[in-house]
Amino acid sequence: MTATLSLTDIDNELSKRDIQLDPHGYFIIYLNREDRLICADHYTNAINDKGLAVDPDTGEVIACKGSKPRMATQTFTGRTAKEICVNLLEKSTPIPLSMFDHAGYLGREFMRAEYALKTGEDYIQD
């Protein structure tokens, strides 16, 4: 008999899967509690032949904890997960992401951020 997995166990197991980086870039999500906003800074990158994110101008690999500060190309905001998704996916041209799994991930993160904004809990991007 197989034990039923908890929702946390399911999420933890799914987090172990291999993911591909979006060649259109990545987002850093955070809360602006003073203005009651969910914020997402977009950063460009390119993907090299090894699947690593590289600076689109220099071709250098972007380290996870690099000392070189990067500048966001755009900041998206919304008071709810739905509003920031509309601003990102329906009101921006071109759309700064190219992969469905990336859009799904952002939607999940925006929901988590909205919950944290409403409850006062900390938000840490997964």
Rank of each mutant, 00 (worst) to 15 (best):
M1L: 15
M1S: 15
M1W: 15
T4G: 05
N12Q: 09
N12M: 05
N12E: 10
K16T: 02
R17H: 01
D18M: 00
D18V: 03
I19M: 00
Q20M: 01
L21I: 02
P23E: 04
H24M: 06
H24N: 08
G25V: 02
G25K: 08
F27L: 02
I28V: 10
I28K: 15
I29P: 06
I29H: 08
R33I: 08
E34C: 10
D35H: 01
R36N: 03
L37I: 01
L37E: 02
C39Q: 07
A40F: 04
H42V: 07
G51Q: 08
L52T: 00
L52R: 07
A53K: 14
A53N: 13
V54S: 08
D57S: 15
T58P: 15
G59L: 10
E60V: 06
E60L: 08
A63E: 14
C64Y: 12
K65I: 05
S67I: 14
R70S: 12
A72N: 12
A72D: 12
Q74C: 10
F76N: 03
T77L: 11
G78Q: 03
T80C: 01
K82P: 00
E83N: 04
I84C: 01
I84P: 01
C85G: 04
C85W: 03
N87Q: 04
N87P: 02
L88D: 02
L88H: 07
L88P: 04
L89I: 01
E90N: 06
K91Q: 02
T93V: 00
P96K: 08
S98W: 09
F100T: 07
H102D: 06
H102P: 06
A103E: 10
G104A: 13
G104T: 11
L106G: 13
G107A: 11
E109Y: 03
E109G: 04
F110D: 04
M111D: 13
M111L: 14
M111V: 15
A113Q: 05
E114K: 01
D122T: 15
Y123P: 08
Y123M: 12
